[in-house]
Amino acid sequence: MNTRRKFIKNASLLSAATLLLPQITMATTRNSSYGVQLYSFRDDMLADPIKTLEKIASLGFKEIESAGSSKGYYYGLTPAQMGETCKALGMSLTSGHVHLDDKFEQTMADAVASDQEYLICSSMPSDGQTVDNYKKVAEQFNIAGDACRKHGLKFGYHNHEYEFESENGEVLYDVLMDNTQKELVHMELDLGWVVIAGKDPLHYFKKYPGRFPLWHLKDMDMHEKVSTEFGKGILDVPLMLEMKEQSGVQYIYIEQEEYASSPFDSMMHNMNYLKNL
């Protein structure tokens, strides 16, 4: 990935016009708003969701993506309370990680009440790592996507590393991409898990341009296979941000599941890293 980044930078030297590209890209990056996946603050959200959201807002985050917890998808708040609290703090509840299960109709109704845009299936509802199973799941996702669209919502899927395993030479994630309808199933690409799986996010941006309206921007320690602060792991964060347009990304959620000290210290580091690119 470092070689590819150098190639892009060297190519910009070919003309006077392209010399302006890095400055334009960096300015765009600095002016971008970032979201956060609330699993990063899971313990704090369970203990005191409103106080925690206030602290998250103070870090400069503008978009919120919720996650499942022992108190539900909204950490003990009602869906409306969750959405209204975020708005009052200058943030938007734009997405939520959910399960595709027998409660999905209520999940959609709650998402409408919270005024969020996306419902993201957080794990593979599959009985096995086979092409046939992934094709079956793709059809389930198409059906869920159609149901969400009727409620004014958008349905999507968040990957881990196991989706990039292969059967008979076929990458299972590609099977999922090829068998889901892009207008019904909106992919949230977790960039950290892609690189842990030994794949390149840029390959997927090129192969499926515009298919990834949501990202999890997550740096990873390749040796421990855990998340880490930006600049300490394997993910080339600046290069990823240069490829935003090709990927079609609308919302970038920072997620960190493990921390050097605390989630707030780690997220402060991450936000400062992005500001100082």
Rank of each mutant, 00 (worst) to 15 (best):
2 N>S: 08
7 F>M: 13
7 F>R: 03
9 K>I: 06
14 L>Q: 13
15 S>A: 14
16 A>M: 04
19 L>Y: 06
29 T>W: 02
29 T>Y: 03
43 D>M: 08
46 L>C: 03
46 L>A: 05
46 L>S: 09
47 A>S: 15
48 D>M: 00
49 P>T: 05
49 P>R: 03
51 K>Q: 03
55 K>S: 08
61 F>N: 05
63 E>C: 00
64 I>M: 10
68 G>Y: 11
75 Y>L: 06
76 G>Q: 02
76 G>F: 00
82 M>H: 02
88 A>C: 02
93 L>R: 03
97 H>Q: 14
109 A>W: 04
109 A>C: 01
110 D>N: 11
119 L>R: 07
128 G>L: 13
128 G>R: 03
129 Q>K: 10
132 D>H: 07
133 N>P: 08
133 N>D: 15
134 Y>L: 08
140 Q>L: 15
142 N>F: 12
143 I>V: 15
144 A>P: 07
145 G>L: 07
149 R>A: 13
165 E>N: 08
165 E>F: 08
166 S>V: 04
167 E>I: 11
169 G>V: 06
169 G>R: 13
169 G>E: 12
174 D>I: 12
175 V>C: 06
176 L>G: 05
181 Q>W: 00
183 E>L: 00
183 E>R: 01
192 G>C: 05
199 K>I: 01
201 P>H: 14
207 K>F: 10
211 R>E: 04
219 D>Y: 09
225 K>C: 13
225 K>L: 14
226 V>D: 10
229 E>F: 04
231 G>N: 05
235 L>Y: 05
236 D>P: 04
242 E>H: 04
245 E>F: 02
246 Q>M: 09
250 Q>H: 03
255 E>Y: 08
264 F>R: 05
273 Y>G: 09
276 N>H: 10
